[in-house]
């Protein structure tokens, strides 16, 4: 992945392994990502692909039992220095300053992410007091302002309400307001609209896009919904079993994807407007558990193009086939080289 002065976050060869009785679970195995200013990076993948763990490791909120390797470099805007988040102590001062400050996060289930026994206002004040100001009155102003920004009706009243008093859509708005209250440089959104209905999802996506325009925050957007990806992202990383299979801009993903997994994923999705009564081209089999995986391509067991002796011999690198388009597939790589 190219990095220039616009890059604010770079993940290099990230590995997250869990030691289990059954063996070594490689949740994330050599992931490279880079995020530029004002960019939305979409991460798409099925459950178990390691997309959530990857982003959680950026904030260092993965379980302590996890074994973390690689580099996560944040180009801090405040200090102008490069910080390697992967080496910071998990409970240290430095990482706690970044968490919810320079990098904040929106979770999937707004009900679980809020404390049920504190008011919305108090929970948001906590972030603001930690990261932006020590003055309580000023903090309250900031909180009310950010509640207003996310389109919350009657913010003064909402400030004193508990999470259960808000509806699902409102709670997700409060969550976004909380994440943005600290003026983050990077916003990580982990399936923020999966639990919402389509009409609410449309509201939240529009809101996030508008806020991004206004504040210039970079967003890492995790989802399994390719429709949402098309709408939100500039660049997309397709993950499967802890590895990035394809990394490209959003237009190429939908109109010139190369990796068999990406193509299969696109075909297996029933979409509004597709030719009807066409049988879906399902991907056979299940996502394997990433324990003691054989050598070679992760997608080997389910890939229609897989060739014995070619795909399962050695681990496959992520190869650049065009500027900004990376694919992890031997067959694509060979074809590409042969064509030139």
């Amino acid at each position: 992945m190219i990095s220039d002065e616009q890059t604010i976050l770079e993940v290099k060869d990230l590995k997250i392994h869990f030691k289990l009785h059954e063996g070594l679970l490689k949740a994330v195995d050599g992931v490279d990502l880079s995020l530029r200013k004002k960019e939305t990076l979409g991460i798409v993948g099925e459950s178990g692909s390691g997309k959530s763990v990857t982003t959680q490791s950026i904030l260092r909120i993965i379980p302590q039992t996890a074994h973390l390797e690689g580099e996560i470099i944040l180009r801090s805007e405040e200090t102008g220095k490069n910080i390697n988040l992967a080496t910071l102590p998990m409970n240290g001062k430095e990482i706690r300053k970044i968490r919810g400050g320079e990098i904040s996060m929106i979770f999937q289930e707004p009900m679980k992410a809020f404390s049920p026994v504190h008011t919305i206002g108090n929970q948001m004040m906590e972030t603001v007091l930690l990261h932006r100001t020590k003055d309580k009155n000023e903090a309250k102003e900031i909180v009310l302002q950010s509640l207003r920004e996310v389109g919350m009706s009657n913010p003064e009243q909402r400030f004193d309400e508990y999470p259960h008093q808000l509806s699902g859509g409102m709670r997700q708005r409060a969550m976004i307001a909380m994440a943005l209250a600290s003026n983050p440089a990077i916003l990580i959104a982990d399936e923020p609209t999966t639990a919402l209905d389509v009409t609410l999802q449309a509201q939240v996506l529009e809101l996030m896009n508008n806020l991004k325009e206004k504040t210039g925050t970079s967003i890492i957007f995790i989802t399994h919904d390719l429709g949402v990806i098309a709408e939100m992202s500039d660049n997309v990383a397709v993950m499967y079993l802890g590895q990035v299979m394809e990394y490209t801009d959003v237009d190429t993903l939908f109109h010139g994807a190369k990796h068999p997994y990406t193509l299969a994923l696109l075909k297996s999705m029933p979409s509004v407007g597709a030719a009807e009564n066409k049988r879906l081209e399902a991907i056979e089999g299940n996502v394997p558990t990433p324990i003691n995986l054989p050598k070679g391509c992760r997608f080997f067991s389910r890939c229609k193009l897989a060739q014995d002796g070619v795909c399962n011999v050695q681990d496959i690198p992520l190869v650049k086939i065009e500027d900004g388009h990376y694919v992890r597939c031997v067959l694509v790589d060979e074809k590409n080289r042969g064509g030139r």
């Binding site: 449309a202 509201q203 098309a230 979409s271």
Partner: peptide, 22 residues
């Protein structure tokens, strides 16, 4: 409802009706 559903194609730019309220 139809317009709220995200289209898996970045080239399709559509006029979206975002319903207000709940």
């Amino acid at each position: 409802l139809l317009s709220a559903k995200p289209v898996p194609d970045p080239r399709v730019k559509k006029e979206r009706i975002v319903l207000q309220g709940e």
